[in-house]
Structure formats: C-alpha cells, structure tokens
C-alpha cells in the first residue's frame, strides 16, 4: 500500500474524529457566547460549565426516531443529510495545520476545497425537495439561489490571493506569508478578505444570511422535516463548513500557521477560533437580511468589487513580474 494512501486514510480518520469533536465544542461555545450576549449563563448543568451538554444533545439526537413524512422520496430524503456531511470530511484533507502537517499534499488544494464545498448546496436542495414540504421547498430554493450567488465572489476573492502567491496549494500560500501580521496577505488584500468573509457567511448559511432556514419565515427551511440524526448531520455539516471557511481564511489571509513564539498549529487553531467567534457574534447581534437584499448585496456590491480587486491584483502582479525581468 502506497504511503500516500495510508496518509490520506489516517488523515480521514483524524478528520472524522476532529469534526465530531469540533462540532461538539463549537455548539458549546456558541451557546455559551450566546448566553453571555443575552445576559444569561448558557448551559451549565451537564458537566463542568455545561461542557457535556452538546454530548447529551447528540445522544438525544442519536436516540430519536427517524421520521419521514408521507409521500416523501425515501432515497433522496435520506441521501441528503449524508451528502451534506460526507464532502465536509474531504474539505479538511488539504488544510495545513502546520508546516508539513496536512493529510493531502495536492497542488490544487484550494480548488479541491471550493469544488467539494459546492456540493453542500446539492444536499440542501435534495433535502428540501424530497421532504414533500412547502417550507422545505422554499428553503431549498433560497439555498440554491444564495449558494450559487455567493460562490462567485468567494472564488474571485480567493483567486486574487492565489495570484499573489502564485499557487493554489494552501501550504505554499501560507509559506509565502511572514511571521508578523504585517507580512500577512490581509495587508495586501484587505478587500478580498472582506469579500471572502461576507461570502463565507452566505456560503455557510450563517446569520445574518441564514435565509434557507429562516426560522420566523420558513419554520426551519430545508430541514423542517428532519428528525434525529437526519437533522444532526445537517447541523454538524454546518459547523464543519464554518470551520473549513474559517480555516481557509486563516491560511489565505491571516498567515496560516505563521506567528511568533507559539508553535504553528497553535497559531492556526487560535486564528480559526477567532474567526469562528466573529461568526458567532454576528449571529447573535444582527437581524436577518431579506432575500432580495441578500442577492442585491452579492450582485451589486460583492461581485463587481471582487472583479475589480482581481483585475487590480493581476495588473500589479504582472507589473511586478515585468519590472523584475527588466532589472
């Protein structure tokens, strides 16, 4: 068996475990932070400071009856949550936690992540469509319109960074950045970072862009009819997707594992956690935008800005190459 294959296998197992763990921890963090924002303690009964509460919730979800509505399409209905969760495992493979600390060293790591994260929308569509529920259908329609729209500026902003770095390999991009914050890509590409983060919120269906599951309008949107682990997988996938977009943002814009004093992986995890906390703060402070506004933000602002940013970046990159040649 080739070494590369074993490496991927170990990586997958590690990812599967850590996704579960991260999911549990993130649920706890989110509920605690939300609690403190809302002047209440959050979960505190189960375990120390309520740390085991997500585990209890997960056990409850596992133990629940899997219910399928009448006249729903059984194959598609159960395929959807699985499909939403499986690609997430792949997304973690090319993420560099430290120098040489990644499961899959691939030239097109960034492309791999973007391609497989695009699959998530398919599962939302299937789930909403197959559950034979009007709210589910509306949620699915929203999810597709939103994800398709926000993928474009996301891609364009990522492209700008890879132009500068000259590589689609995440580890290479990180190596191109220095130790200190002023050596990071966020200094040269602040606009791309902004566009990326806003699009990432849209991509992961997080508030204020959580329209596919807008509770007060669509009850729960595409996962209205899912019970037990059907819902649990969607939920886990959402958190895992959050981790992935934050990790990619860290690698691309915030210098990845680069940082003074502390070892690389610690810096990486710290930066990812910071971005995730930011996303949690957004969710608990802002109202939800309206659907047409959401698309307007994308098509009227993010898209043109991302294109302009890309053009400007490529112009300067070319300029730098020319001047180098002449010297």
């Amino acid at each position: 068996m080739p070494a590369e294959f074993i490496r991927i296998l170990i990586g997958l197992v590690a990812v599967a475990i850590s996704v579960g763990l991260i999911g549990l921890v993130m649920v706890w963090v989110e509920r605690k932070v939300a609690g403190h924002i809302q002047r209440r303690p959050g979960p505190y009964e189960v375990g120390p400071s309520g740390l085991l509460q997500p585990l209890a919730d997960a056990l409850k979800l596992v133990g629940k009856q899997l219910f399928m509505p009448d006249k729903a399409d059984p194959i598609l209905f159960w395929l959807a949550p699985v499909l939403s969760f499986l690609p997430v495992l792949l997304l973690f493979l090319p993420l560099p936690l430290g120098d040489g600390l990644y499961a899959l060293d691939v030239n097109l790591g960034l492309l791999l992540i973007l391609a497989f994260s695009g699959l998530a929308v398919l599962s939302l569509l299937l789930g909403g469509w197959a559950s034979n529920n009007k709210y589910g259908l509306l949620g699915a329609a929203r999810a597709v319109a939103q994800s398709v729209a926000y993928e474009i500026p996301l891609l364009l902003s990522v492209l700008a960074v890879s132009f500068v770095a000259g590589s689609l390999n995440l580890a290479e991009v990180v190596k191109g950045q220095g130790t200190w914050p002023w050596n990071w890509n966020i200094m040269t590409q602040p606009l791309a970072f902004l566009i990326y983060m806003v699009s990432a919120l849209g991509e992961t269906n997080r508030a204020p862009f959580d329209l596919p599951e807008a509770e007060s309008e669509l009850t729960a949107g595409f996962h209205t009819e899912y019970s037990g682990m059907g819902f649990g997988l969607f939920f886990l996938a959402e958190y895992a997707n959050m981790v992935v977009v934050c990790a990619v943002a860290t690698a691309l814009f915030l210098g990845g594992w680069n940082g003074p004093v502390l070892p690389g992986p610690v810096w990486f995890v710290l930066k990812v956690s910071l971005l995730m906390l930011l996303m949690v703060f957004f969710r608990w402070t802002y109202p939800r935008v309206r659907f047409d506004q959401l698309l307007n933000i994308n098509w009227k602002w993010l898209m043109p800005l991302a294109v302009l940013n890309l053009l400007a970046t490529s112009f300067f990159v070319k300029l730098a190459q020319f001047t180098e040649v002449r010297w």
Binding site: R39, P208, A214, R283, Y286
Partner: peptide, 15 residues
C-alpha cells in the same frame, strides 16, 4: 425582532 431574525433583543426586553 425575533421575527426579523435578531435573537438577542427579546432577552433584554424580557429583562
């Protein structure tokens, strides 16, 4: 505000 998707104000209002 809960209808509009802001989860936090209701906690302050209820306070």
């Amino acid at each position: 505000l809960l209808d509009l998707g802001a989860f936090t104000p209701i906690m302050y209002a209820f306070d």
